[in-house]
Design a binder for these strands. Structure first.
Length: 203
DNA sequence: GGTATGATGGGC
DNA sequence: CCCATCATACCC
């Protein structure tokens, strides 16, 4: 079932954590494309320099100032799109960036990264401002549960320019997933202990 | 294993 | 000029 509006109208860090395990669905004309969310980042605070809305409302960021449960989709580095979920009450600009999906349905390319997953699901700026309770783009709960023990936090990727705000541990991911973004996979190789609990005991 | 760099185009 | 990225080239 689709997540209700009330799911999104909450503190952004709670929404980010709870988005892990939910299913992102693009109801494209060519068919349904879907994946399970395994990695996200929170853009929580209007003062956060990494938050696109920290310089006020602009044509690009206006949707972040609107009601929760809508898509914020933008072009990044001229080549890729990024998909975000607008959170909090109307007027408070915050969002969660979806960074990686486990492919579920109709997916032929990699979904391991925010730009790649948009390409794989066919998400672009035409879906900016889409209502996530609508048919084109939605988030669904299929009953899959991500236990707290499987959730790790880390610094957000690519926001070094944001000064002290870059030090906030506002990235959340399923630490055992095979489908994380490249930065998350590299970090895990450097610190295998972060998946130790997922290894079967003994042989 | 790691870091550096260019593609590419809209935003401010 | 700035980038909420990614693939590739090259070096240890």
């Amino acid at each position: 079932m689709k997540l209700p509006r009330s799911f999104y109208a909450r503190p952004t860090l709670e929404v980010a954590r709870d988005l892990l395990g939910k299913v992102l669905v693009h109801g494209a004309p060519e068919g349904r494309r879907a994946g399970r969310i395994v990695e996200v980042e929170a853009y929580v605070d209007p003062e956060d320099r990494a938050n696109h809305a920290s310089r006020g409302s602009t044509p690009r960021t206006a949707v972040m100032f609107g009601p929760p449960g809508y898509a914020y989709v933008y072009l990044v580095y001229g080549m890729y799109h990024c998909f975000n979920v607008v959170t909090e009450a109307e007027g408070y600009p915050a969002a969660v960036l979806v960074r990686a999906l486990e492919p579920l349905e109709g997916v032929a390319e990699s979904t391991r990264g925010p730009g790649l997953l948009c390409r794989a699901l066919g998400i672009d700026r035409r879906l900016d401002g889409a209502d996530l309770l609508g048919d084109a783009l939605s988030l669904e709960d299929d009953g899959f549960l991500v236990l707290d023990d499987l959730v790790a936090t880390a610094l957000r990727v690519g926001v070094d320019f944001a000064g002290e705000w870059a030090q906030r541990p506002w990235r959340f991911y399923v630490r055992t997933s095979l489908w994380l973004s490249r930065p998350a996979r590299v970090a895990r190789r450097r610190n295998p202990a972060c998946v130790a609990a997922s290894q079967p005991p003994g042989r």
